[in-house]
């Protein structure tokens, strides 16, 4: 796991049994983490990044990771900041204190979504049963993060390894997303 991005942050939820654990692909529920939506103009990025601990990427669909921190590009003025749950208050207050009156918006969205880790040689195939994105490594290299549509549900997909993806959906959509992933993977068990 250590060669994966943010492997100290995105970890399988130890309390949950795997949704799918099959030779060529597994689907594991990710443990809860702190998620913050950070919105600001370019002038504030450096300061925010320095106090957060990971720089806020300005390259579209890119991420920056540091020890127990990850900053994901969501839009030209929008980042999702990830940190361990217990660091939520520290991160939130740290950024607020650092930026002070500089225009920005910081909102706790930790509870809004849940994530599953889709991993294995068939991970790309499985995601492509519902997502119309070219996941070949040259088109979607490790580290790429994007919002998109999985069948009828909005999701966020973050490639943390060549065969590993974090798929995040709003909580009420997760039954649908995880359910369809598991169902679609069934045929891999066929003889």
């Amino acid at each position: 796991m250590s060669d994966l991005l943010a492997s100290d942050l995105i970890t399988p939820d130890a309390g949950e049994s795997p949704l799918l654990n099959q030779g060529s692909v597994s689907i594991l529920k990710a443990a809860p983490i702190a998620r913050l939506s950070f919105r600001a103009r370019e002038a504030s990025l450096k300061a925010a990044g320095s106090v957060f601990g990971a720089a806020l990427p300005t390259t579209p669909l890119a991420c920056e990771t540091a020890v127990k921190r990850a900053a994901l590009w969501m839009g030209p003025d929008e980042w999702t900041l990830l940190a361990p749950e217990e660091d939520l208050k520290e991160v939130f207050e740290g950024i607020e204190a650092k930026l002070g009156d500089e225009p920005h918006a910081l909102v706790d969205i930790s509870e809004r979504s849940e994530a599953v880790i889709v991993s294995g040689e068939k991970a790309v195939w499985l995601l492509n049963t519902g997502i119309f994105i070219d996941f070949s490594l040259d088109a979607f290299p490790v580290g790429t993060v994007t919002r998109t549509i999985f069948h009828k549900s909005p999701v966020m997909v973050w490639r943390t390894g060549s065969d590993t993806f974090v798929v995040e959906a709003w909580v009420s959509f997760m039954d649908y997303v995880a359910g369809l992933l598991v169902q679609s993977a069934q045929e891999l068990e066929a003889a």
């Binding site: 939506s37 979504s113 909580v171």
Partner: peptide, 8 residues
């Protein structure tokens, strides 16, 4: 800036 918190 606006952020959806419906499910938060």
């Amino acid at each position: 800036w606006i952020t959806s918190t419906t499910e938060q």
